[in-house]
Simulated assay, not measured.
Amino acid sequence: MSSGRFDADVYARRLSAAAAATTSAGLAGLVITPGYDLRYLIGSRAETFERLTALVLPAAGAPTVVLPRLELASMKESVAADLGLDVRDWVDGDDPYRLVADALGGTPAATAVTDSMPALHLLPLARVLGVMPVLATDILRELRMVKEEAEIDALRKAGAAIDRVHARVPEFLVPGRTEADVAADISKAIVAEGHSDVAFVIVGSGPHGADPHHGYSDRELQVGDIVVVDIGGTYGPGYHSDSTRTYSIGEPSAEVAEQYSILRRAQRVAFDFVRPGVTAEQVDAAARDVLAEAGLADYFVHRTGHGIGLCVHEEPYIVAGNKLPLKPGMAFSIEPGIYFPGRWGARIEDIVIVTEDGALSVNNRPHELIVVPVS
């Protein structure tokens, strides 16, 4: 495995599985433009422009990459050459949509496209195909949700790297410094601890902690603040870390300590509930019920978790109404939170992977409210 992608055999298996899923769905093929699906299937980080770049994956037959001649270099980091994929380049004045149709067999046929395909490519493609494509989401979702060993290894390494960042956070939480100051230090630490890029940084101090997606601001940290730190980065071949811990600058009040202990129990109960066959909504309910029993239901304002991989947020979503049974290899966050508008908030988040008989957490920093001493 290189830092940019996995070994070619990983992508060969994915292409074969995607073709089989396409056949099972009764479709002629997939057309995948740049985005996470393309990166998943062939390791390409090509970008979307007004000129069409696409992987054409027929249900029966060899995959083809259609792309502008001036974008040939964008395929170098992919496995197109390693797998011997047919590359059909085109120049301005050619019809790339006809090349796609030819790669699919040349006759009108039901085709699926990635959900990130821009309308400027979808509409002319539909015109040439003679049929409006459907979304490939249902075809690829199962493949992307259930992680292979190489993906699990990347997620575990990403989790360990973000744990090392959280271990350094207390030294950054000094009264008088701004949230932005702390976020800058965290961003440097995310890269220093092994990530290739910073995905996001949330530093929510005091009343800002009651906004789950606050970000950071010029507010100065104060003694007595409860601080929500939610951070993540990109690791290795594009997989993500995402972990939240909550800090107290100085000793917390008895009320905060009590309510936080309930949140900690909710997070643990949800983790213990994870195993194959349990549904996503049942894990959400496990966390929610603990908070509801303590009268805190109204202060938990978001889902319990989201899948993670090439995207920070992807399926499966751990939310009420999602009856999807969990399977070994699924990876997602467990992150209940409590938010008191204008006062404070708290969240505890780990990334977990479903095993044959339970769950494995890739994050292993302490879950208690972390007290930062003040002089």
Rank of each mutant, 00 (worst) to 15 (best):
4 G>I: 02
6 F>S: 02
6 F>G: 08
10 V>D: 09
10 V>A: 10
12 A>M: 08
17 A>E: 15
18 A>I: 08
19 A>P: 06
25 A>K: 13
26 G>S: 06
27 L>H: 12
34 P>F: 03
35 G>F: 03
36 Y>T: 10
37 D>K: 06
41 L>C: 07
48 T>F: 00
48 T>R: 06
49 F>R: 15
50 E>F: 14
53 T>A: 04
55 L>S: 07
56 V>W: 08
57 L>H: 03
57 L>E: 02
59 A>T: 09
64 T>P: 09
70 L>K: 10
73 A>H: 14
75 M>F: 00
78 S>K: 02
78 S>I: 03
81 A>F: 14
82 D>H: 13
83 L>G: 09
84 G>T: 02
91 V>T: 10
94 D>I: 04
97 Y>V: 01
99 L>R: 12
104 L>G: 09
104 L>A: 10
111 T>H: 11
115 D>L: 03
116 S>R: 12
119 A>K: 14
124 P>D: 07
128 V>H: 07
129 L>K: 07
129 L>W: 06
133 P>V: 10
136 A>D: 13
136 A>I: 11
137 T>M: 05
141 R>N: 13
142 E>L: 01
142 E>C: 00
145 M>W: 12
146 V>A: 12
149 E>C: 00
151 E>N: 02
151 E>C: 09
151 E>Y: 05
152 I>F: 00
153 D>C: 00
154 A>K: 02
154 A>M: 13
156 R>T: 14
157 K>M: 08
157 K>V: 01
162 I>C: 11
164 R>T: 02
164 R>I: 01
168 R>P: 00
173 L>M: 04
174 V>G: 04
177 R>Q: 12
180 A>P: 06
183 A>L: 08
183 A>E: 11
185 D>Y: 02
186 I>W: 06
188 K>Q: 11
193 E>W: 04
199 A>F: 13
199 A>N: 13
200 F>Q: 03
201 V>G: 01
202 I>Q: 00
206 G>R: 11
206 G>L: 05
207 P>A: 10
207 P>C: 12
211 D>G: 00
214 H>Y: 15
219 R>Q: 15
221 L>R: 07
223 V>R: 15
224 G>Y: 06
226 I>Q: 04
226 I>W: 02
227 V>Q: 12
232 G>L: 07
232 G>T: 05
234 T>Y: 13
236 G>V: 01
238 G>H: 01
244 T>R: 04
244 T>A: 14
244 T>S: 14
247 Y>H: 09
247 Y>S: 04
248 S>A: 15
250 G>R: 04
251 E>P: 01
251 E>H: 08
254 A>S: 15
255 E>N: 14
259 Q>S: 05
268 R>I: 10
270 A>V: 07
271 F>S: 04
279 T>I: 03
289 D>A: 14
294 A>E: 14
297 A>F: 13
298 D>E: 15
299 Y>H: 15
300 F>L: 10
303 R>L: 13
311 C>A: 07
311 C>E: 14
312 V>Y: 02
313 H>A: 11
314 E>K: 01
315 E>C: 00
316 P>W: 05
319 V>S: 10
320 A>F: 08
320 A>H: 13
325 P>A: 11
326 L>T: 05
329 G>L: 10
329 G>R: 09
329 G>C: 07
330 M>P: 09
335 E>W: 00
336 P>V: 01
340 F>I: 03
341 P>D: 11
343 R>T: 10
345 G>H: 09
346 A>W: 10
356 E>F: 00
359 A>N: 06
360 L>V: 02
371 V>H: 11
371 V>D: 12
